[in-house]
Amino acid sequence: MDKKRYSFAWRRARAHMGVWQPVLSIIGMIGIGLLANANDPTARIIGLSAVAGIGAMVAGVQAAFIFAPADEPALELVLSAPRPVAYLIIERLIVLAALNGAAALVGSAAFPLLAPSLARSIEVGDQLLRWFPPFVCMTGLGLALGIITKKSAFGVLLVILLVGAMLFGGPGVLTALVEWGWVAHLFLPPEAFTADQILINRALLIAIGAALIAYSIALSREGESHLSAAVNAG
């Protein structure tokens, strides 16, 4: 018997995710670049983590909306359709990655031009390497919290608080608590740590994000509990 094949619904996924958040992301990166070049103290604190910080935060916020059962319109129809919910999550994840990847690319290319005093020697590839691990981690966190708590607000909040605290607090936010806290820091500055430490940190962030995404897809099969959250106002 032939295995049933389902098609992806890219247009619907793009409409659900929206394009204005990645546009805001680019505006934020460019704004911080300009402010940093003008020696604004807050922008200087964020410094070279601007692309990674803004990019990861916007992606995490968007991910919280990927599949939050209480916020999902017509969830009964989605759950009663033969196409698995996992398809819906995967296609929205791909749209999110494409939009935010494009935003990070534009931000990485523009940042050295806008803030030459800060980022003259930073390559675009280097910026993208800084952006990718926190992007995966925050996407996984936002998505998982949206499904676990059944609504997007908790994921949105935690992503904003985590990114904000680590962006402004620097590595000291975690290393003050535990000596090896650097392993889980979202924006570890390469100039202050060894290559091995950076490698371990980035691999761990990607692993955490990937594990959370896989867990979220596994949770998407629990249609009964999602429906219950949707009809009981979350």
Binding site: V61, F65, A70, D71, P73, K151, S152, A153, V156, I160
Partner: peptide
């Protein structure tokens, strides 16, 4: 009109 839009308003209010 929707919870989703309201959350975005909440983000703007940060």
């Amino acid at each position: 009109r929707t919870r989703r839009t309201a959350v975005f308003i909440g983000i703007a209010l940060l």
